[in-house]
Nucleic acid binder design. Structure first.
Lengths: 163, 163
DNA sequence: TCATTTCACTTGCACCCCGCAAGTGATCCT
DNA sequence: AGGATCACTTGCGGGGTGCAAGTGAAATGA
């Protein structure tokens, strides 16, 4: 029951409580990567092309673990490797991500293919069911094709260097 | 077409693009307050009990305007007052907020009344329709009762003073 | 065996943004 | 006219973020 949730609550509103965990730039992207791309390791996230810093990534993974959204287990064949995996609570975010996806696809010009968007809009239940099935069975083939360039040297995204 | 969207895009994924605007602690809470509570003014948000700082609030309102999620219009009867209102793009976030609400209500122990949660879970379409109806007609009676204490002096929420 | 590579981080640094208290200017109320 | 209200802004200190570089353990290759 997520009992660990820290001391202070801003308010009792579920939306507010959800945003205490998820209200930042990265958490939902990590969940998305675990859910629909086949990502499982630290390296996978680093190279995801979004450009998250390694220390921030480490912090987020820690936090998501503490909140019970993901688990980490060392891989049997390679003790260096940690496999991250969504929990039931984590996979439960599928509808949120779906709606967020549909919203952005409608109101921003994204690179999302129309056919995919239309399919998602018409058959949301089936999509969620498929996501859960893949989660249960450990199927990690990407549901949505990863961005064509799994950026090997992700460009820095800074405002403007002062000097 | 949200053309103003700034120069750099982290990735083409709609979820990532959505989080560029909404991926922080406050933006979605402001949208929620406009959507289901009757909030319209700067003061309303300040007293919402979540404890947002006034400078941060001003910044968020600016950003949400720039992104086309809200508009601001001076009230006719009182020129000091600015009325904020959701745009079509803003009201389009209703399903996202609904799913986020349901997720938190299921996986965290929130103060949400079970009957309300159950009703939301069983009749999501009707709820969204009602939210849109209220938005169209300018009906600002709170859809969900505001937290009993519209905190007059919101407590500071700091980690723990060092000393 | 032993160097090299890979992996999952950590450390140090500069900068930016946040939370907070206080202030500002315009507008309303009396 | 004087005070209250509103929507902010400013100044300050601390914490979080982005980035480059480093660390230690485990795998890989010669």
């Amino acid at each position: 029951m997520s009992g660990s949730a820290s001391a202070t609550r801003r308010s009792g509103c579920p939306v507010s409580i959800a945003l205490e965990t998820l209200g930042d730039r990265w958490s939902l992207l990590i969940v998305r990567d675990l859910m629909v791309r086949g990502y499982r390791t630290f390296k996978d996230f680093q190279l995801s092309g979004e450009g998250i810093a390694s220390n921030v990534l480490a912090g987020r993974l820690r936090k998501l673990q503490a909140e019970g959204l993901i688990t980490a287990a060392p891989e049997v064949s390679d003790a260096r490797r940690l496999n991250y995996r969504l929990t039931e609570k984590g996979i439960g975010l599928a509808p949120v991500l779906l709606e967020l996806y549909l919203w952005a696809a409608r109101h921003e010009n994204t690179g999302a293919p129309c056919a995919v968007v239309r399919a998602m809009r018409r058959h949301p239940r089936e999509l969620i069911a498929e996501v859960r099935r893949r989660w249960r069975t450990g199927d990690t083939t990407p549901l949505i094709p990863p961005p064509s360039n799994r950026n090997r040297n992700p460009r820095p995204l800074r405002k403007e260097r002062k000097g």
